[in-house]
């Protein structure tokens, strides 16, 4: 079980801010592959992966990151703070 959270337009395209997913994915990329075959809205949100950033357990990471022991994965567009 892994908590997956979404922000900004990624959240809007998927239509929810968070969900808990039962997955056997070993990496973030495998999790995304599982999600995109699930429903069209995931495919739309993840269509351009270069436009999406990843955080694993609240630390910036990337699509190659392993999911072993991970509790929360976040997907969001490039940040616009400041």
């Amino acid at each position: 079980m892994i908590d997956v959270v979404y922000f900004a337009w990624v959240r809007e395209r998927i239509g929810k801010p968070r969900e808990t997913i039962e997955t056997g994915a070993e990496t973030v990329a495998e999790l995304v592959a599982e999600l995109t075959v699930r429903e069209a809205r995931y495919e739309a949100a993840f269509a351009d992966r270069s436009a999406i950033r990843v955080a694993v357990d609240q630390v910036l990471s990337d699509f190659d990151a392993p999911l072993s022991g991970v509790r929360e994965v976040a997907f969001f567009p490039p940040m616009t703070g400041g």
Partner: peptide
């Protein structure tokens, strides 16, 4: 400022 712009998780 530079790091807050693109490494702090805010979206405007």
């Amino acid at each position: 400022m530079d790091y807050l712009k693109s490494r702090a998780p805010f979206w405007k």
